[in-house]
């Protein structure tokens, strides 16, 4: 009796540990199998890639056709790679193993040339239609013996954020230093005046080694200042009197505490600002300026009308040219 109970328990535990989803079992029972990994760990943002690697192998004949069906059709550029990757002496080496890579609507296909085991990469370019939605994929492979194996991914949440990287700011009189979060771009003085865009300007970029508001000089450096923030622009820099002066809430951070691997462009920085960070950021009592910014610094911002919350990252600053390069993620609140 005890032995029976023990065996039943062992069977239950084994099932729990080694049990597979139905489609995986089907694949493994046959001589053909395929499995995927999602290589992208960053937030999934519209316009950005979601990278998968799909490994497959067959004991019957050769691999023939490979396909993936996305629940929401990918944007232009969604495609299977036709090469397989491997690393030799720390260098990425590719070998052509497939042909006829095509994407039509939700379906991306590719044909294997002549092998019975390989791994291909699939890049899904996140389309606008997927913003804030969940997307899933079904990978499938067939072999020359007529077997078919498929596996479905979990659903992945697509971010509602926008992202723009490496925007140059020039802190000179004629430079592009007037920034609109709605447009995610910097304008020059002439452009703002010509287009009557002052109501769109959320902050201005300025650089000066020091600022002298009274008799004493204080460190100023590279700064982002709301047009409404009085007394925080360097001497000689004034906002034209006729302009709309918006007050953008700002919360300054530094790289030691807040990173973003996507904005930094560093594949080894797997720390990211995600939708929830912008949703949860508290701006009660915030300033409307952020001064003395340096490389890797950052500022959470909320536009005066509350429409956008943004994370502005300082990629680099240059004192000698009075310039900075920034990147940002932006969430539209309504």
């Amino acid at each position: 009796m005890k032995r029976t109970a023990y065996l039943i328990g062992l069977l239950a535990v084994s099932t729990a540990i080694f049990g597979c989803k139905k489609n995986e079992i089907e694949a493994r029972n046959k001589d053909l199998t395929g499995s995927f990994i999602k290589r992208t760990v960053a937030p999934l943002i519209v316009g950005e890639k979601i990278d998968f690697a799909y490994g497959m192998g067959t004991k019957s004949g050769k691999l023939s056709a490979v396909q993936v069906t996305a629940s929401i059709a990918g944007a232009t550029g969604t495609l299977w790679e036709m090469v397989t990757h491997r690393t030799v002496n720390a260098a990425d080496v590719t070998t052509l193993v497939a042909r006829n890579s095509q994407t039509n609507g939700n379906l991306s296909t590719v044909s294997i040339i002549d092998t019975n085991a390989t791994t291909l990469r699939y890049a899904y370019i996140t389309p606008e239609a997927a913003r804030g939605q969940k997307v899933s994929f079904e990978f499938a492979v067939t072999n020359s013996a007529g077997d078919r194996s498929s596996v479905r991914t979990p659903e992945y949440q697509i971010s509602a954020m926008d992202m723009k990287r490496s925007i140059p700011l020039v802190g000179t009189a004629a430079g592009a230093r007037y920034f609109s979060i709605a447009d995610m771009r910097a304008y020059t003085l002439a452009e703002v005046e010509a287009g009557n865009l002052s109501a769109k300007i959320d902050f201005v970029y300025a650089y000066a080694p020091t600022i002298t508001p009274g008799t004493a000089a204080y460190t100023y450096g590279h700064s982002l200042v709301s047009p409404a923030a009085a007394g925080f622009l360097p001497n000689g820099f004034t906002i034209p009197a006729a302009w709309t002066r918006k007050s953008t809430a700002m919360e300054k951070k530094i790289g030691t505490w807040v990173y973003d691997g996507q904005l930094k462009g560093d594949a080894n920085s797997n720390i990211y600002i995600d939708d929830i960070d912008l949703q949860k950021q508290n701006f009660d009592g915030s300033a409307n300026y952020a001064i003395t910014l340096t490389n890797d610094g950052s500022v959470f911002m909320k536009t005066a009308d509350g429409r956008y919350t943004a994370f502005v990252y300082i990629n680099s600053v240059n004192n000698s040219t009075s310039t900075a390069v920034i990147s940002l993620k932006r969430l539209q609140n309504f």
Partner: peptide, 9 residues
């Protein structure tokens, strides 16, 4: 506090 400090927060 240094110049530019948001003493409100």
């Amino acid at each position: 506090a240094k110049f530019g400090t948001n003493i409100s927060k």
